[in-house]
Design a binder for these strands. Structure first.
Lengths: 345, 345
DNA sequence: TTGAAAGCGCTAACAT
DNA sequence: ATGTTAGCGCTTTCAA
């Protein structure tokens, strides 16, 4: 009945009873000095610092974050608000972020804020309250939510997109969209559809790029050519079907992201249409499966955005929020789903 | 130079200065009683408990987890060791896990243990020490690593695969492999290749299923038909290329997972071969892109495995590690990448 | 049933 | 440059 494997049964007590006092004693100094030495504080002789470090190492000392925090120090934890951990984009962001935070000895605490109820629950209860030194948001945040976050009274940074008032690491969505659109236009396409996602209606986003590119090319954008779908393959498939149902379907499609683009390609194949001969498709992201499916796309450095967000957090915690925002470059990746339109009209 | 937006500048102090003492005073009791009342402790009059609860509610009191922990309580945190957060499988696992932990008011702290150096660093420094009540491993753990984890002195559970000595939630790898292989055999294939991953050489795993299925079908397994690759699309593409280079290539391929299968399909298409007419391909997972690419596969409930692991953690923290392991079902999903072999030999 | 008192392990003044 | 002294906010004996 009671377990036989290595799991802990009883009230689960913490291991490593080595305290700062032990280290201090071992190094022949006071706890205060040991604290300063380890914490990188001022007024510690280099030799002393080294001695304390050695003692800590030898005793395999690990500070109690609880006690540190309680005594006024930082928690050593960073909350990350992520909508969909299972989507490649967010996983990649998380990976970059985790690496950078870990390097700074900061723990990453994951909070999922996907559906409306989850969001509401998070912002209502604010489970991160008093538990973290900073928050990284990987999702847009509205006015009300911003106010709630502000009540946490910690630094907030954004990654993977601009989020209203926070320092952020992102790509230029508009520029990325232009790269995609200009490629299609350059190939000779004029009737270009867009499969966009629900809430991405930023004024300087991908959708705006679609419109601007067409205007610049002297083509009056046709509102019928924009469909709005969920941000996944299913959405892309649906969106493409809707575009195909148009009286005059497009000769090329710009998808909000690669998953959507792949969904679009699937609908086209099912409809017996050839890609790119009959219809060109381009996405954004450079998802690993884009290479596998030979999808033309605009690549963005996702993991790097996460990493840089980690740097932003570290800077903020040092009290130097130097850069308010950074924009990373995107680049067109030519593959096999785009070509000149079939029949010149 | 100093920021102008809403970020916190100064030493980042915590919000919510309402303490237990405030609540106690408000309710006209002592801090000790308030603590017992809120914490569900014994020896508190129902009326008193209610009064304290009301006071806490009114003051919007949030207990300091730091202080609670320091005074002997649990941390309310669970560490999760994940190899590749950006891979769909792990993201999905994380999502399920997070939901269940959140419901129990447990925070999920993410530790990436991908490459060998990362693993080594984690197990050497054990950054989760003293910080969590339990650990969830989403990756195999060897003897040495197990010993290190044990030194944490907290409950450990596994998800997404059996991990030696821990309670775990997983699917039956062998059965899943058999489902895939039996499907191919049933279609009439006899020369079936396998693209497996590096370290997945569990004795009761997918590879063993490949072999067992062939033997049961009266086919002597040909070792040349097994190639070992990295667990992603690139690996699948490479593996398929190697199989095509064989003197006598297979008529069907069983891929360790869907990403690998998609990579294999890509190589086939590039080689001018038709799928499934010339060669059938089956994967495992039911990755969202499998539906989009019409890939036949064996589906496993990934998110559910994460969720169930969360339940396991909750049970462990209550001191009742009831179930030592649970096995979730898999099911064959017929799509368009498998068919009977072209030329009966 | 309730209260008083003693820490948990650490950091931050303030002294020296 | 280092040591001393107070707490941080809570839980938990132990008394009442």
């Amino acid at each position: 009945m009671t377990g036989d494997t290595g799991g802990a049964q009883a009230p689960l007590r913490s291991a490593s009873r080595v305290t700062l006092d032990d280290v201090a004693r071992h190094a022949g100094v006071s706890a205060a000095t040991a604290s300063r030495a380890l914490g990188g504080g001022p007024h510690v002789a280099a030799a002393t610092r080294e001695r304390v470090r050695a003692a800590a190492e030898e005793l395999d000392y690990v500070a109690s974050p609880e006690a540190a925090r309680l005594a006024g120090g930082p928690t050593g934890r960073v909350a990350v608000l992520v909508p969909h951990p299972s989507r490649w984009f967010f996983g990649e962001l998380l990976e970059g972020l985790e690496g950078e935070l870990r390097a700074a000895d900061l723990d990453l605490v994951l909070f999922r804020v996907g559906g409306p109820e989850e969001r509401a629950a998070f912002f209502a209860r604010l489970p991160a309250r008093r538990k973290v030194d900073a928050v990284v948001v990987l999702t847009p945040v509205d006015e009300t939510e911003h106010a709630r976050l502000a009540s946490l009274d910690v630094a907030v940074v954004a990654a993977g997109g601009r989020v209203a008032p926070y320092p952020s690491i992102a790509v230029d969505e508009h520029a990325a969209g232009r790269q995609a659109m200009d490629h299609l236009l350059h190939l000779g396409h004029r009737r270009i559809g867009m499969i966009d996602v629900e809430d991405a209606g930023r004024p300087d986003g991908r959708r705006a790029a679609w419109e601007a590119a067409l205007r610049d090319a002297g083509v009056g954008p046709d509102g019928d050519l924009v469909v709005t779908v969920s941000a996944d393959g299913e959405g892309g498939a649906d969106g493409m079907a809707r575009l195909l149902g148009l009286r005059s379907p497009p000769t090329a499609v710009f998808a909000h992201n690669d998953e959507i683009a792949l969904g679009a390609v699937r609908t086209l194949r099912r409809a017996g249409l050839r890609v790119p001969e009959d219809l060109s498709v381009i996405g954004i992201d450079d998802h690993p499966l884009a290479a596998l499916t030979d999808l033309t796309t605009v690549a963005q450095p996702v993991r790097e955005q996460g990493r840089r967000a980690g740097e932003l957090v570290r800077a903020a915690l040092r009290g130097e929020l130097d850069q308010q925002a950074a924009t990373l470059p995107t680049r067109l990746v030519l593959r096999g789903t785009t070509s000149p339109p079939a029949a010149p009209r």
